[in-house]
């Protein structure tokens, strides 16, 4: 456990010493901010519109602001996650520092967990930035906070799964760019798999749609904690980290 923390701290330090973390945080904050004010603006506009017509339609901040925002965050995440994970192992392989880790008395599992955790912490700090925007809503409205918490939990779980897959892909190459591009491709695929459910209801389509990381986010975005969906993400996390461990092992036997 101590070793996991040592590795994690080291990774966090390299994220925050180099511009990587700041660029990601800034990008995330700007894009999210844009979405936030757009959705809020639209919400206010609709509110005024209905007032002018003299009808009092019930409007729900949770349904109409928070839910679409959370879905947007999960999509932005798809684009930023490859940038978080691409360097994790590829860089160590390129500079040869992997030789230090592999000849130190730490297990592969500890190294992998440490690296994955550091990626999680970076992603969580990006989410923390978005939370500032939500504070604004709480200042002026009275949304229900429970769905919000569940939504954030869903975001973390979803990111955890994709980060695990990204970590795995990073062990496959020495080249960060290749790792990033491949991770992006896989993330995108896991996202768009859901589209087949739009026109097809056969079993294969249901399976494909089930594999999509977006399908499982819907309940979280609604503020519902569905065990099935949580289990899906947790399974994906384990699967990704397991593949990473296998990849590291075979790396030794192959080279």
């Amino acid at each position: 456990m101590r070793n996991v923390w040592i590795i994690c701290r080291k990774e966090l330090r390299s994220y925050f010493v180099s511009p990587v973390a700041y660029i990601l945080l800034a990008m995330f904050a700007v894009i999210f901010g844009f979405f936030f004010w757009n959705i809020l603006g639209y919400f206010v506009f609709r509110g005024m519109e209905s007032q002018m017509r003299g009808q009092m339609m019930p409007m729900n901040v949770n349904e109409e602001v928070i839910r679409p925002l959370l879905s947007n965050v999960s999509v932005i995440g798809l684009f930023l996650i490859p940038m978080i994970t691409m360097r994790l192992f590829a860089e160590e392989k390129r500079t040869g520092t992997i030789e230090l880790l592999a000849t130190s008395p730490v297990s592969d599992v500890e190294v992998i967990l440490g690296k994955w955790l550091s990626a999680m912490v970076l992603y969580a700090s990006m989410l923390l930035l978005t939370a500032i925007n939500f504070l604004f809503i709480f200042r002026y409205g009275h949304p229900d906070w429970k769905p919000l918490v569940i939504g954030y939990l869903g975001l973390l779980l979803q990111a955890g799964a994709l980060l695990a897959i990204g970590t795995f892909i990073s062990t496959l190459t020495k080249n960060q760019i290749i790792a990033g591009a491949a991770t992006f491709g896989v993330c995108l695929l896991l996202w768009v798999l859901e589209w087949v459910s739009g026109y097809e209801t056969a079993t294969w389509a249901r399976v494909l749609s089930y594999m999509s990381v977006i399908t499982h986010f819907e309940s979280f975005a609604k503020g519902l904690l569905d065990a099935k969906d949580a289990i899906f993400y947790v399974t994906l996390i384990f699967f990704g980290l397991f593949l990473t461990a296998r990849s590291m092992e075979s790396l030794r036997w192959r080279s």
């Binding site: 390299s14 500079t95 230090l100």
Partner: peptide, 17 residues
């Protein structure tokens, strides 16, 4: 691993540290 010190061909240094 606990008992060896190893200097690889290229020193395993992290440039940002």
């Amino acid at each position: 691993k606990k008992r060896i010190g190893y200097l690889p061909e290229t020193p395993p240094l992290y440039p940002e540290m």
